[in-house]
Design a protein around this nucleic acid. Sequence first.
DNA 1: CTGTTAGCGCTTTCAA
DNA 2: TTGAAAGCGCTAACAG
Lengths: 347, 347
Amino acid sequence: MEPSIADVAKLAGVGKGTVSRVLNGHPGVSEKTAARVRQAIRQLGYTPNVQARRLAQKKSDLICFVLSNRDFLHEFHSLVLKGVENYCSKAGRDLVFALWRYPLDGNPESVVPPRIIANRGSVDGVILAGANHVECVKAIAKLGVQCVAFGNNLIGCTHLSEVDSVWYDEQPGTREAIRYLASLGHRHIRFAANISLPWFARNYRAYSDAMLDFGLAPALVSINDTCDYVEIGERAVQEILDLGEPTTAIFAGNDVVAVSVIRALSRRGLQVPRDISVVGFDDSPRCIESDPQLTSVHVPKETLGAECARFLIEKISSPDKVSGARVVPTHLVVRGSCAPPRQDVAL
Amino acid sequence: MEPSIADVAKLAGVGKGTVSRVLNGHPGVSEKTAARVRQAIRQLGYTPNVQARRLAQKKSDLICFVLSNRDFLHEFHSLVLKGVENYCSKAGRDLVFALWRYPLDGNPESVVPPRIIANRGSVDGVILAGANHVECVKAIAKLGVQCVAFGNNLIGCTHLSEVDSVWYDEQPGTREAIRYLASLGHRHIRFAANISLPWFARNYRAYSDAMLDFGLAPALVSINDTCDYVEIGERAVQEILDLGEPTTAIFAGNDVVAVSVIRALSRRGLQVPRDISVVGFDDSPRCIESDPQLTSVHVPKETLGAECARFLIEKISSPDKVSGARVVPTHLVVRGSCAPPRQDVAL
DNA sequence: CTGTTAGCGCTTTCAA
DNA sequence: TTGAAAGCGCTAACAG
């Protein structure tokens, strides 16, 4: 039988309360008794029962990471999760992991939250990652569960602080990318993605703003009828070549699209960066696995996760005190996929 | 204030015990009272308090997925995790996620288990994924925590059932791969990996057995001084070309190595599968992103996860009744990276 | 500074 | 079939 706090108290010749106090580092215990208690704890190999403590304190010290509407944890969210785990474990919280799947276009009213969230007191708070509809986030919050969402993959969100959320800011990195391409001599930089997806739409806006600032004309190719990033890349290349308009650089919506673009180009005999430059977005691990290595806008994924955790823990300890959106910057990582435009080739 | 079971009991005009009985579907409650209780539950919007139940039942219904000694959740383990999550959520268990890092070569005695495991009663059982030393798995088990390990990444394991574990069997898929290459006309198939890593060593053994069965001579190139799969692929190609021995097909230890091999070959002007065939291992998502698409031995990652969860849950409900190793088969998935060997090129 | 005691909300005998 | 009551192991308020 596991020893309980009563056994420790008896052995140390003190009351349960005192044991509890030294266990939790509460003040007001003489060093002498504390030492005696610690000795007893060691002697019995005692470990507190987590469930009992949770019941008494009415809190679980558990944080739930929910991945919504994704088939599995891709690299991006794996790294976000890592950031969350890191922060939580330092903060003495454990992490529960759950998948959630619901129709993103359907009626948010009819969406049922995962059991872990619906169960009262099961977790202290929730981090909503993956793709979520903003109304569903609100629904969770209304359930009385503290919650923070990963902002950039939110659907139907009109402004940053519509729900408590953590975002990456695509602007600085995108701007750097355009500045870099422009400095290389590029004037025909085309954005390729599917801008019906909000995150790509925001990237496009950042791209477009930066282009205008540098006196360049934004140009877009958007493949709107698929969410398969590989396909987006392939078809974008197809369209760009069919277009016949000059394009010396392609700014892809993310790295998967970028890698797919590079492959599609190479299948058509176009070499990156000699014939055309490519920059990606996310700075995922595949950037260094691709050939040439991909220049990409770095998204601080672990930081994003850590910020979600920090924000949530703040909300848990002081609800109503903190709210809104938190934003972390992006920046460009230069590798080998860009070069000055070729003068002799009319693409 | 949240309604408690007492509120429900009072409203329904019954005892707490009765409410508990209907809540848990226990027999021996008349349909009439049960209906009354359910009505009261609905009326109050009552949800049971998980922590209280856990304390009373002395179980947590929580399963912990521990990822050991990995920098983050790569695709492979993401899919294993997905399998675990799926099975657990169907079994009514929640999943806690933890990272664990310890020196794999050091003294297992000095390794401290993650807090979540050390805390008594915090979770009902543990799935140890990632790379673990078999002694550390034993140490966890000795702690009195039910635990199942992912077998293939175990270090220092002398036989399958040394600890309770779930494995994929590299034999059938590997055999299929060799048979397939042989049927294409290949006789010089070389295995490339780092066989100082146990999983690659097992792959090599399966490869070697299959080669012998088909009357072919096993040939190996092993890069033993790095665990960086990309580097292994690159240097393996280098060595193979330096070797000057005939090689018409390369069987890579895993897909990352295979993709790296393909790239290294192409940088040297060798085209896959025209000049040389390549097969990978794992059948990861990148197989269809690579060009050509990679023929690979499929490892059923989600099944692996589900089996771990099933095994663990069995162990939890009947400890000492079940033990040993469980093995799931692999099979070959043919894509575009193999072709008959070129007769005219001496590689 | 420290012991005692009353919960936390649920499950589970034990009688009835 | 059901109610009452005794825990589960811990925290926290209250006396002393």
